[in-house]
């Protein structure tokens, strides 16, 4: 599956005109695990959001497996899952099992099948003992794991994770990082965790709305460290 950006820009309206937050960018992502690193406000999340249609290109074209998120958003979202930094906004149902089941409503119309599938997903990610627990009562690591499970339940081909370890302690950050890198899906990982980024196959260093370095992850991470 190809992920292609052709001369893509993103502008947002501000009081005195438009603000360019992503300069013309052309990329083809073919590696299994790609990291996006760079300072806050550089445009990493915007770049990542383009892949799922959460952000739309102001000019240029994004193609995910030949599909344009601007016009075929539903089809693209079935192929590209997305998780956010703060899992609290993603967990919309009262209990752990119900939240995963929400993701499965489209694919499993029958309730008992859906519940069984949700339990299967929870078991896969070691959350089955929390199935009936309120999402409010979960730890930060458990919430992030549940948010991931809710997205992975739909079996996307690509997972885009926007700073999934930023709010976590060291142990949970390692657990989530190991899980992400071990997924069979392709991964686009926005992160400030440079050790995690270095374990990817490729990294892009984004700064001031531009991709300023692109290559093997360890090389890009070393470059980022040396120039910061």
């Amino acid at each position: 599956m190809s992920v292609l950006l052709e001369e893509v820009t993103v502008r947002v309206p501000v009081a005195d005109g438009d603000l360019l937050i992503l300069e013309p960018t052309s990329l083809e992502l073919t590696e299994r695990r790609v990291a996006l690193v760079g300072p806050n406000g550089a445009g990493k999340s915007t770049l990542a959001r383009l892949l799922n249609g959460l952000a739309l290109a102001s000019s240029g074209r994004v193609l995910v497996d030949g599909l344009d998120p601007a016009h075929q958003g539903r089809e693209v979202r079935r192929k590209v899952g997305f998780t956010f930094t703060d899992p609290a906004a993603q967990l919309v149902m009262p209990t752990v099992a119900e939240d995963v089941a929400l993701s499965l409503r489209r694919t499993h119309r029958n309730r008992s099948e859906r519940e069984a599938a949700a339990l299967g997903v929870l078991t896969r990610y070691g959350l089955e003992h929390l199935a009936e627990r309120s999402v409010h009562g979960l730890s930060g690591g458990q919430r992030q794991l549940l948010a991931l499970a809710g997205v992975l339940a739909t079996e996307p081909d690509i997972l885009v994770a926007d700073e999934p370890t930023t709010l976590l302690d060291l142990r949970n950050a390692r657990m989530i990082g190991d899980l992400l890198l071990g997924l069979p899906q392709r991964l686009v990982l926005v992160t400030h965790d440079l050790e995690l980024a270095a374990r990817c196959d490729r990294a892009l260093l984004v700064d001031d709305g531009r991709v300023v370095a692109d290559g093997p992850a360890q090389d890009v991470v070393d470059h980022y460290r040396a120039t910061t």
Partner: peptide
């Protein structure tokens, strides 16, 4: 954020 998360999960997409 919740709207974006639901959107990203494809919840509410027309079949």
């Amino acid at each position: 954020e919740t709207g974006a998360a639901l959107h990203a999960r494809g919840v509410g997409d027309q079949d």
